[in-house]
Design a binder for these strands. Structure first.
Lengths: 193, 193
DNA sequence: GATAAAAATTAAAGTAGTTTAATAAATCAC
DNA sequence: GTGATTTATTAAACTACTTTAATTTTTATC
């Protein structure tokens, strides 16, 4: 399994010695996901935090009318999972599946608890990760309140320039909070400018 | 200044000894805000993280058409500030002001950095705070995608039962992402049921 | 406690985005 | 490679929410 990738990510935030690194590696479990394979389904308990080494995943809900709403996409170098379900070990409200063939590294809750004890620096690491995630989410909330669908779409493609190609329009529209039909209309309109 | 309130909050997450507590207290600065007084304006650099002891604050933006959009309300026991501006010491995109006469405890960035060094347990503390904030924001994003305005309003008043009374309808509507006019219509409709 | 200013209500017209449905294009499975 | 399924496009009718504007109610100020 490709451990270097996650170690490199971690070294951007904290410095680990050999023993700490070895312990960290020892709790990682590699998993491969085929396209459309589920990592988590509504009602499941989220047992692991998951670092994406390769591929693309989406976290989404299905509403009472059967429509999907994408809470986040995750690509290489990001963490995915349902944090609430993970922390409380209660059933999740989210689905998570792979959009592409993907590879993740998993940490079980009991192992993560051990990790925090044995290597307290990881408190800092995940604090930093969470800070970034919090800021990104806050910006998205603000944009959902302030922007039109067109502005949100334009912001999405400029902020994540290579992501759109990896997604279907249906998935992008479920992230933006509009229908695929309307996204198609927007794209047509924008291409004519 | 009322330190006990924040110490009590902290003790729910981490245990501090006397020296650690004393150091923590030494970096706190108390500030009172009058109604409508600003804690932060767009373009300012957010110099402090702020714990609310008493009162109610709102974090919001003003769009190009002059409309306000509320990213969050903060009441007793919550932290407010623009995390991005705070971390990068760059100009903020948000306004933060007091909806009621309020009292906050402030920590400067340089002091917080010292605190993390001297009392690493605070890495854990803020990680836990951020986890909760992240989960709450993710739920809000999901609801903004999945719910109608009426559903969002009903969820807001059930989730924060005593908050609505402290806010004007204009502020609630700016949080829900609808106009005050439409919120008024919704409330009328719901009261007739 | 009178006056001004801000917030809430109501109604009517307008619009951004949805829904439905039919067609075309792309992807999937064997 | 062919048929089946999913995805994207287009157009027309529809609706949740906005805009404007006039009136009433509440709050703030001296």
């Amino acid at each position: 399994m490709d451990i270097d990738f996650i170690l490199q990510n971690i070294s951007r935030h904290i410095q680990l010695d050999k023993t700490e690194t070895d312990f960290f590696i020892s709790i990682l479990q590699s998993k491969k996901l085929k396209r459309k394979e589920f990592l988590l389904k509504q009602g499941d308990i989220c047992k692991t935090e998951n670092f994406i080494i390769k591929g693309c995943l989406r976290t989404y809900t299905i509403d009472e009318n059967g429509f999907e709403h994408v809470v986040m996409f995750g690509i290489e170098d990001w963490w995915v999972g349902d944090l609430f379900s993970f922390l409380t070990q209660s059933p999740s409200t989210y689905y998570i599946d792979a959009i592409e063939e993907s590879e993740i590294l998993q940490i079980k809750k009991s192992d993560l608890d051990k990790l925090y004890e044995r290597v307290p620096k990881f408190e800092r690491f995940f604090r930093l990760i969470l800070q970034n995630a919090f800021i990104a989410q806050q910006q998205r909330i603000n944009q959902n309140l302030s922007f039109t669908a067109e502005q949100r779409y334009l912001d999405f493609i400029t902020k994540h320039p290579n992501l759109e190609q990896r997604l279907s329009q249906k998935q992008v529209s479920a992230y933006l909070g509009i229908t695929p039909v309307f996204l198609s209309m927007l794209r047509k309109k924008l291409s004519q400018k």
